[in-house]
């Protein structure tokens, strides 16, 4: 039941995001987005470090592409 609720929320989020994207931003207006500060994700090594730090200290790893297993006897 909880899983279905999660799936429904995910579907709504995806649809909302897609709907917001109906107006396309021209490529010559995306210069600000190229700034490294605007990256949605951290630099890969930093992202891995943070991911491992949280997945080994909180019981909420996995489900979003993280490995959720492997190494240091973590679950």
């Amino acid at each position: 039941m909880r899983a279905w609720a999660v799936v429904r929320i995910a579907a709504v989020c995806a649809l909302a995001t897609a709907a917001l994207g109906c107006a396309t931003v021209a490529q010559n207006r995306r210069g600000r987005l190229a700034d490294p500060m605007m990256r949605l994700d951290d630099e890969p090594l930093d992202a891995y470090r943070q991911q491992k730090m949280y997945t080994t200290r909180e019981g909420a790893a996995g489900g979003d592409g993280t490995t959720a297993g492997g190494g240091c006897g973590c679950q």
Partner: peptide, 16 residues
Amino acid sequence: VTQILTPTTIVAASYG
């Protein structure tokens, strides 16, 4: 999905 919303805003959503 990752979406450029405005020249100064970018968003992303994912499920796994």
